[in-house]
Simulated assay, not measured.
Amino acid sequence: MIEKILTDYITFIRSFEALLKDKYKQDINPCSFSHSFFERVGSIDGIEYHFHGSGCTAKKEDVIYTYDIGINEIKFTQWDLTELIRTHPEYQKLNLSDDYIEYELYQLINKGVLEWLTIEGIEGTPYGCVFMCYRVIQESFFD
């Protein structure tokens, strides 16, 4: 079920980004040009959005999609996915536990679809750490 939820999540994010790229005639990640071409807070095609730092929170029909953006990568935490599940009318009925979600995400890491995001230099330390953050490395898996 997590694969289906992630497929919907990624499809929504890429469709939302395509709307912004089309409207503003840009072919780069919307987070890269949100401060130049449009307000970081707004709405498009029934989607309310707020770009913040390197991420975005988008809301459509009370379903919340929150994520971070790399150059062309989708990054998310387990909390981001849990917010989607909590606010989605179909997914919230599944009563998925945090342990189940974490286990299923780990299985996708083992398949090479996701990977841990290593964050370096936290609080002045020179070492990277794993911060329960995931990076989508094989989007075609979700097509």
Rank of each mutant, 00 (worst) to 15 (best):
E61R: 06
I44H: 00
E104C: 08
R86D: 11
R135D: 02
R135C: 06
T125N: 13
I47K: 05
G53T: 13
A58S: 01
L114F: 01
G46I: 01
K75P: 02
E61M: 04
Y134I: 00
T118I: 06
L114T: 01
N29F: 06
Y49I: 05
K21Q: 12
Y127G: 10
E123N: 15
Y65N: 01
L94F: 08
D45L: 04
Y9G: 08
L6V: 07
S43C: 05
F51R: 12
W116Q: 12
N29G: 12
C56L: 06
A58T: 00
Y49F: 07
G46Y: 00
F142R: 00
E139H: 00
G124F: 03
K111W: 01
Q26F: 08
I122H: 10
L84W: 01
I122L: 14
T125C: 11
I137K: 03
K93P: 09
F38G: 14
K21Y: 08
I64P: 07
E139F: 00
S15D: 09
D98T: 10
F131N: 08
M132P: 13
S140C: 00
E115R: 08
D80Q: 03
Y106W: 13
N29S: 14
D98E: 08
S34H: 11
I85F: 04
I47R: 05
I64W: 01
L6P: 07
K21V: 09
K111S: 02
E48N: 13
